[in-house]
Design a protein around this nucleic acid. Structure first.
Lengths: 153, 153
DNA sequence: TCGGATATTTCGATGATCGAAATAAGCAAA
DNA sequence: TTTGCTTATTTCGATCATCGAAATATCCGA
């Protein structure tokens, strides 16, 4: 037993995560795709196409998205020296500051929370979150191929 | 140690969860708010205002949202016998079927995954996810009051 | 019964997104 | 080198979700 309680709590946790993220969006004026894009750019400059794939937006939508972020001074465009068709989108310092402001505190609080667990316990927690993450990714793969026209009709 | 690895894995897990959810949206033709609303209605009929609060949409947007779901046959409107100003939105059988179809498999796989853990281990996992959930909710509260006009300018 | 409060809908405007077409640059073969 | 195909991004017009304000309907207390 306990699996039902664990599942329910995870659902509640994910819901809270979504609510938190939504709040960040309201306070920053950035929508879900904007935030996803910024989070990706925090790992380094990316081309528009790579952003489109990861954020799951059309290339034209990414043009508008980057315009938006650039208007806020959060990113800048830079020609790719290797291939002048490409445009590299680069996160600015303000983007990192924004991340620190909104996600820094929770990251630190999370680390702090984990100090209440022994090393052995943390090993188990890591095993669990890895299992959960792997499971979620497996379910993504199972959902992908189908591409059913409309499950809702 | 291990906290960094745990944090990184959780971030990866949340990302996968978002991707999964987005895929469900594409395959069902339901956007994020639609899905949130349905998920709420799975717990019982709700008034438009309650939906607006939970889904974080304006009341007028909820009218449109419910129209959309109703057009898909997923919900129906029902006058509240107690207060005729109110409209109760009720999930239809097709909504539950949709949930079962997309979230049933992962719920069962998750339960199955947990069978690899002993009861003692599950207790620890439950403690951990409760801690994480509580932390996330605490961070929501800390973010709420500020209501800063624009953190981005 | 009157008047303010509450619940929902309607309406016009805004803005994010899409797909198709346009533009620009790379690349390979003649 | 030139020609033509491919790839990367942007522009453009259309669509749709959402908002805020106004309209409508109902409730409830004085």
């Amino acid at each position: 037993m306990l699996t039902a309680a664990i599942g329910a709590t995870i659902a509640e946790w994910q819901d809270a995560t979504e609510t938190f993220d939504d709040l960040v969006g309201r306070q920053t004026g950035l929508n879900s795709a904007d935030r996803r894009c910024l989070s990706m750019l925090a790992r380094g400059p990316q081309t528009a196409l790579a952003i489109a794939r990861e954020v799951r937006l059309s290339p034209s939508a990414v043009t508008a998205l980057v315009d938006r972020l650039a208007a806020h001074g959060l990113v800048s465009r830079k020609a790719d020296p290797k291939d002048r068709r490409r445009v590299l989108v680069v996160a600015q310092a303000s983007a990192f500051a924004l991340f620190e402001r909104f996600y820094g505190p929770i990251a630190r609080a999370g680390a702090e929370m984990l100090t209440a667990y022994s090393i052995e316990e943390r090993k188990l927690i890591l095993r669990f979150v890895r299992d959960a993450c792997a499971l979620q990714k497996r379910m993504i793969e199972e959902l992908k191929p189908t591409d059913s026209p409309a499950a809702v009709e």
